[in-house]
Design a protein around this nucleic acid. Sequence first.
DNA 1: TAGATTGTTAATCGATTAACAATC
DNA 2: TAGATTGTTAATCGATTAACAATC
Lengths: 234, 234
Amino acid sequence: MASLDSTPQAVPDLPGPAGTAAKQIPPAAVARLTLYLRALNTLLAEGVERVSSESLAEASGVSSATLRKDLSHVGSYGTRGVGYEVQYLSRHIAAALGLTHDWKVAIVGAGNLGKALARYGGFESRGFDVVAIFDADQMVVGNEVGWLRVSDVADLETVLHRTGANMVVLALPASVAQDVCDRVVAAGVRSVLSFAPIMLQVPEGVNLRKVDMATELQILAYHAQRAQAPGQTA
Amino acid sequence: MASLDSTPQAVPDLPGPAGTAAKQIPPAAVARLTLYLRALNTLLAEGVERVSSESLAEASGVSSATLRKDLSHVGSYGTRGVGYEVQYLSRHIAAALGLTHDWKVAIVGAGNLGKALARYGGFESRGFDVVAIFDADQMVVGNEVGWLRVSDVADLETVLHRTGANMVVLALPASVAQDVCDRVVAAGVRSVLSFAPIMLQVPEGVNLRKVDMATELQILAYHAQRAQAPGQTA
DNA sequence: TAGATTGTTAATCGATTAACAATC
DNA sequence: TAGATTGTTAATCGATTAACAATC
């Protein structure tokens, strides 16, 4: 849906902000652009054709000032006095985020989490193809997960190359995460999303993001404790 | 491990920064404190007794300036010229984060993700007890997941009260997330972690955090696209 | 005392908000 | 033309970094 173009070369740029060298978008804005994109695609599915910054902002849980500021980094795709055309804006945000060609994702770890990720419909529909899933356990290698068969992590490099995977998700124990991560990076992958509860080291030029469920709960605990704490208004 | 005290009342405060009304810690610092805590517990397990801001910062992937600034929000638990005592600092960070009593977590959704979360060892070891897991599918209700049996989501309110759950993790489809979230909040839970790819509305006073795997991949895509883009040095 | 390292202050940087001129 | 809403500018706010005085 978000994928409009599958040329594997550099994004050809829709009309866009002139032939500019595509200015950097602030990290906080990039994160929110993904929210706007989701909200726009929901509207699109509902058949809504136009939306104002005010209502798109509300659907995304941000202020309209923030939304307009964020969109200004992408370009100028609205009409004053009118609003935004849903499909048009959606396409331009997708292009700005690099979603105009499909990304091929390999998952390392076929435990509960790896399987959950492999079967998660949200990937396919957003231009991410899961092309391989690995495990080290010989009892698990060869099993079916969704459309795929579990590959042996011993064949990591071979399978990554054969499938052309350009993103890797690590869904494995902390103890082996750094080793696998090193191999993945050595195999040429430059985008890694890790669910392992450990600080991974990657060389310059490799993008690493981390999702940590225990951390999220700890942050909730901090706020919950403060809310309960005495000293404030009961 | 992180749990030192199980009194269910408000944190009794170790020596702490005087009887002060516990000043607010900036959100960015709270998130990083969880990283320091993990690194400290790793050091503790390795038998390391003392650590400098420089090396703790490196283990946590931040600068030492940032680390010392963050710790200054918690209190002043180091020794100039020497460093920090690992266990002592760990305890004080845990106390500041509200991890001195156990939190009881219920998971709604016993699909792959819910099961992965229920079995994730990182929770128990950090003071989070998973006390219940729910599903709507009658084929799944009654199944064993780790130590638990899957409860019927129809009994949500009853089971939440009986188990004393004070945190809920939503691991369910977007289509039912808001409904279940409303029920959870109505049952008195004020801390919710959602994995559903949708913007949930919660009333004032309820803490909601969101983890979104598709969003993480999209953010990676943005950076990967930029790295590949022409115009920069090849 | 000399060397080391914290805790804090001040300077820089980036993100958010508010307001409004441009313009459909 | 009058009403509405964008895109942008300027002001505010918070977070990060660097530097160093305090002190073990």
